[in-house]
Nucleic acid binder design. Structure first.
Lengths: 245, 245
DNA sequence: TAAGATGGCTACTCGCGAGTATGGTGGATG
DNA sequence: CATCCACCATACTCGCGAGTAGCCATCTTA
């Protein structure tokens, strides 16, 4: 029941071009594409108008189809929200896995996760991930969501503890600090919209810099000269995180 | 239409104890008490179950009355949310007024506001203040709310700028910093519930400390010794904030 | 070309919840 | 005592939106 992706392993190469299975596999793939389009349309609508103010007719209209068509791909509205949530959270879990490899200080690993976290929140699934309310979902799915959220929270706390241990993070209460950091990033979903002057990555960078420094002025080590080139940290990061640019 | 409190100036002393107006004034006062009880009950319900999952029958039941009674005191559900929002936001505006008097550094004034802010978010109206969605309200009220939110945002940015100017705050982008700080505090409304191990004030204190220090370790000035007595700031503050430092 | 599978649409049901019409009670006022 | 008003309940209306029943078109496979 949980896994409805009944598609076979689905190798990419087609050994016999005229295989009678080709058309069938093509159909399965197209179905999955359409299904994902429904999820994305839902995320987009939830983003703009909120979960409760979005009807399935709205979502269907955005796809130029009718409501029963949407129900052909998902079982109900609740599941739609859940899938959006999972899509968003998966980006963050990936960030944790990625960072786990690196052998740097705890603070740097934490920063890496926070940057991905911020980007994910600013992405199209950010709203759903952040604002999926337990009250809006059945107990079963609410449990799933709470577990996933807790996993992320614990992961952040762990990174904080490790950073404090290795001296790269100022001594602090891991629980409260995790709440503060995650809260600031989560809130991005409330005010950020595409077509803003900054990208999600830029905002995440800015936040990480703020968290690092704190409000109280620093000694001369990091002087005001840093403000002129705040992108320094960013550029050195780009190569590390997403193997690119 | 906007101001429905038609009660007269309502002086407290009653010159003629047997005045024929006494009963009338008493009634007006009782009506206001009941009206506020409705608002509080609504805030409580919104807090627990969310705005959309709370029916006016729920609110009425919590007060042991019926729905028409609720409608006798408020015009509609939307106004109910709006009043809760205003009640929450008023606490924060009060914090700004209070802090305006003090002649201390910008950072200290900012901290004062942030502490009140955090307390307000953790209070019973916190949820409504933080989560009043523009989409759930009519354009008119949505405009009101946006204006009030913007006022607070601008106030925080101003304090940050002043702190940077007087050297009490590390140079930073006021806009992004304000978003980060307010976001972290706003998020408290999502996870904090009464009967928690910490009070709202304690959480606000913890957050302010985290913001001040930042993640990167500080020089010996503020050493790990601070961690042993994190409540120091709290107790010394209690007398300060309410009734003025 | 027949038979089935797949995908989609039209046209419903149905419950929930916001908001209301109307009537009754009890206390203050003449 | 008659009346009026404040307050509250019973018993509705009514629209919206989630979810469904059942039919039609098209494509696949034999």
């Amino acid at each position: 029941m949980a896994n409805r992706r009944t598609s076979p392993p689905a190798v990419k190469q087609s050994p016999s071009p005229a295989s009678p299975w080709r058309a069938s596999r093509e159909r399965v793939r197209e179905r999955e594409v359409k299904r994902e389009a429904v999820i994305r349309a839902a995320a987009h609508a939830f983003n703009r108008k909120g979960y409760h103010n979005t009807s399935l007719d709205d979502i269907a209209a955005a796809l130029d189809v009718t409501k029963p068509t949407v129900y052909y791909y998902v079982t109900n509205k609740e599941q739609l929200l859940f899938e959006c949530f999972v899509a968003g959270v998966e980006q963050i879990r990936a960030a944790f896995r990625e960072v786990k490899q690196l052998k740097v200080t705890g603070r740097e690993r934490l920063n890496g996760v926070l940057r991905h976290y911020g980007e994910a929140v600013a992405s199209e699934f950010g709203w759903c991930m952040v604002r999926a309310e337990e009250q809006d979902l059945s107990p079963a799915m609410s449990g799933h969501i709470k577990a996933l959220k807790s996993e992320i929270d614990q992961g952040i706390r762990r990174l904080i503890r490790e950073g404090v241990q290795d001296g790269s993070i100022h001594p602090c209460d891991p629980k409260m600090t995790a709440f503060a950091l995650a809260g600031a990033l989560n809130w991005i979903a409330h005010w950020y919209r595409e077509n803003q002057s900054m990208t999600g990555a830029e905002i995440a960078d800015a936040f990480v810099t703020i968290f690092e420094n704190g409000l109280r002025p620093r000694a001369a080590t990091v002087s005001a000269a840093r403000r002129a080139t705040p992108r320094r940290a960013a550029t050195s990061r780009q190569a590390a995180t997403r193997a690119g640019r």
